[in-house]
C-alpha cells in the first residue's frame, strides 16, 4: 500500500498583474518522500512554494495539507506545515533559543514538550553551541540553519524549504542534505534548488517548472534514464512550454 498523501495541490494558478507566474500546477507528496522543485530563475518556484505554505493566496486552485483544505481550515492545515522562505524570517534582536521557542509556541507545541523539541531541532541543525547568541550576530550560514530549525521545530508532517543550502559552506551543505534525507524518513519534504547534484543525492522525485508550467514530473531515475540529471534538465528547459526555443 502506498504511503498516505500529505500534501496535494490542484491546478494552482497565480498572476502578478497580467503576467501568469504559476500556471495550472498540480502536485502530490506522500509521507516519506522528498520532492525537488527545479527551474530557472523566475520559473515560479518560490511563488509555488509560498502558495503551498499558505503565505500567498492562489488565484485559483486548492491546496490540501494532511487532508485539511488550506483555504477552508487554514489553522489545522498550517499546523502540519513547516516553511523556510527564500529569506529566512528571523528577528535579529532575539536570541536563538528564544526565537525557536517562539516559533514552536506559534505552531502550538504543548508547553511540556517545548524543551525537548528545542533540543532536538538545535541538535539536528547543529545549533547546540549558539542558543544564547543574538541572531543578528550570527553568520549567514548559521542564520540559514536557524531558519531551517524554525521550520522543523514543531515536527510538522510537511516541510517546505526554499533553497535551503544557499549561503552555506560545503560541510554545512553536506550536513543539511543529510538532515533533509533524515527528515524524509518521517515526514515529507519539498524543496526548491538550482543544484542538480542536490536533487540527484536527496530527492526521490523532481518537478521541473518553466514559465510557471510543469514541464516534467517524475522520479529521479526517469531523469537519469538518458543521461545525467543536469543534461536532462538543460535538454528539458531548452524549449518553452509551447515548444518554441527558450532564450
Amino acid at each position: 500500500m502506498p504511503a498516505p498523501i500529505t500534501l496535494a495541490a490542484c491546478n494552482l494558478t497565480r498572476f502578478h498583474g497580467k503576467r501568469c507566474v504559476v500556471n495550472d500546477v498540480s502536485l502530490e507528496l506522500r509521507r516519506g518522500e522528498v520532492l525537488g522543485l527545479l527551474g530557472h530563475n523566475g520559473a515560479g518556484k518560490s511563488t509555488t512554494l509560498q502558495m503551498l505554505a499558505g503565505s500567498l493566496t492562489p488565484g485559483s486552485g486548492q491546496v490540501e495539507v494532511c487532508n485539511f483544505d488550506l483555504a477552508k481550515n487554514p489553522e489545522q492545515a498550517k499546523a502540519c506545515l513547516g516553511f523556510l522562505p527564500e529569506q529566512p524570517p528571523l528577528y535579529r534582536d532575539m536570541r536563538v533559543d528564544d526565537f525557536l521557542l517562539f516559533a514552536a509556541r506559534l505552531h502550538r507545541v504543548a508547553p511540556a514538550k517545548l524543551a525537548d523539541y528545542l533540543q532536538l531541532a538545535k541538535q539536528r541543525c547543529g545549533l547546540l553551541d549558539c542558543g544564547q547568541q543574538l541572531i543578528g550576530r550570527l553568520s549567514k550560514g548559521y542564520q540559514q540553519r536557524v531558519g531551517i530549525a524554525q521550520a522543523l521545530i514543531h515536527q510538522p508532517a510537511v516541510v517546505i524549504l526554499d533553497e535551503p543550502t544557499v549561503g552555506l559552506d560545503p560541510t554545512q551543505i553536506r550536513d543539511i542534505r543529510n538532515l533533509i534525507r533524515e527528515l524524509g524518513n518521517s515526514s515529507s519534504v519539498i524543496l526548491s534548488t538550482h543544484l542538480m547534484n542536490e536533487v540527484e543525492n536527496i530527492c526521490d522525485r523532481a518537478i521541473i517548472l518553466q514559465e510557471g508550467k510543469v514541464i516534467f514530473s517524475g522520479s529521479i531515475n526517469e531523469l537519469r534514464r538518458h543521461s545525467d540529471v543536469e543534461s536532462s534538465f538543460i535538454r528539458l528547459t531548452a524549449l518553452r512550454p509551447d515548444g518554441s526555443p527558450a532564450q
Binding site: A53, G54, S55, Q76, F83, A103, L106, Q150
Partner: peptide, 14 residues
C-alpha cells in the same frame, strides 16, 4: 519589510 511577517502568516494563528 524585514520579511519576518511570513513567519506569522504561515503560522496556525488567526
Amino acid at each position: 519589510r524585514n520579511q519576518t511577517w511570513i513567519l506569522l502568516s504561515t503560522a496556525p494563528i488567526s
